[in-house]
Computed example of a mutant assay.
Amino acid sequence: MSDVTETTEFDPTATATEADAGDETALTPSQLEEEGDIAADYIEELLDIADLDGDIDIDARGGRAYLSVNASEGSSNLRVLSKPDTVNALQELTRIAVQTKTGSFSRLILDVGGSRDARASELAVLVDKAIARIEEGADSAALPPMSSYERKLIHDIASERGYSSESEGEGRDRHNVITRA
């Protein structure tokens, strides 16, 4: 059985960034909370069906509902779901479940077993390598195609390091190009 821990520290000023928002408007704290609750119920049911133990934390980050599923104390069977492709697939299924209940597009983020933090660390290394190429004389450095969430992280990491990042390409070929700011 999974435990749901709800974090209700919603930032009412949090809005989606232009790079990632599309035409969607920012959700209110109560809408984010509703998305989080619906998503947590869906994930909890999925964990029960799969006979996996996990603790679910609900939060809001950057104008999105953020669910984190971590192994219960003394249990490590959750790592079977923490592979990046599996987390992305579960996130899409969870978004569909939320959209079905709310009737609105969902931008929620799902993290299983710390996989999002691990991926953010990998992306930081990619950005550092791209910056090294620029410092060695390249005008820009293109990164491989990735999801909109990962491109958003790249934008943030590049900005933190004093560089600029633009998304280029279409569909599955959409990627970041880093340049000097």
Rank of each mutant, 00 (worst) to 15 (best):
T8M: 09
T28F: 10
L46N: 00
L52A: 01
T15Q: 04
A89Q: 07
M1H: 14
V69W: 03
A132R: 05
S106C: 02
I49Q: 01
V112L: 02
D48A: 00
L47C: 00
D55W: 07
E35P: 04
D3C: 13
I109H: 02
D41E: 14
A16R: 06
G169E: 03
E168L: 06
L27W: 14
L93I: 07
R64F: 06
L27Q: 14
N88G: 10
Y42W: 13
A97Y: 07
A97Q: 12
V177A: 02
K152P: 00
S68G: 07
Q31M: 05
G62R: 07
T102R: 03
A71L: 09
Q91Y: 01
N77A: 15
M1K: 15
R180L: 10
G103P: 03
R172W: 03
I154K: 08
E34P: 05
P84A: 08
A21H: 12
A26P: 04
L47T: 01
S121P: 12
A142N: 06
G137K: 03
E45Y: 01
Q31A: 08
I56W: 00
S104M: 12
L52M: 01
T25R: 15
A130Q: 08
S159F: 06
S159E: 13
R107G: 10
D128K: 05
S140E: 07
K83M: 10
E73A: 11
A181W: 15
P84C: 08
I58G: 06
D173M: 04
V98D: 08
G22S: 13
L46S: 04
A130E: 03
L52V: 04
D111K: 02
R161K: 14
K152T: 03
S164C: 11
Y163L: 01
P144D: 10
T7M: 11
S147H: 10
E170S: 05
L108V: 01
A50I: 02
A181F: 15
F10C: 06
D20N: 09
L81M: 12
D20C: 14
N70L: 12
R161I: 00
E44A: 14
S148Y: 08
S164A: 15
D59F: 08
S147D: 11
G114T: 14
E33F: 06
E6Y: 13
T94K: 00
V80Q: 02
D51K: 06
L126H: 12
T28I: 12
Q31C: 02
G62A: 08
A65R: 00
F10G: 05
V127S: 03
V177T: 03
P144V: 06
L27N: 12
T17R: 10
G114I: 11
L78H: 06
L78T: 04
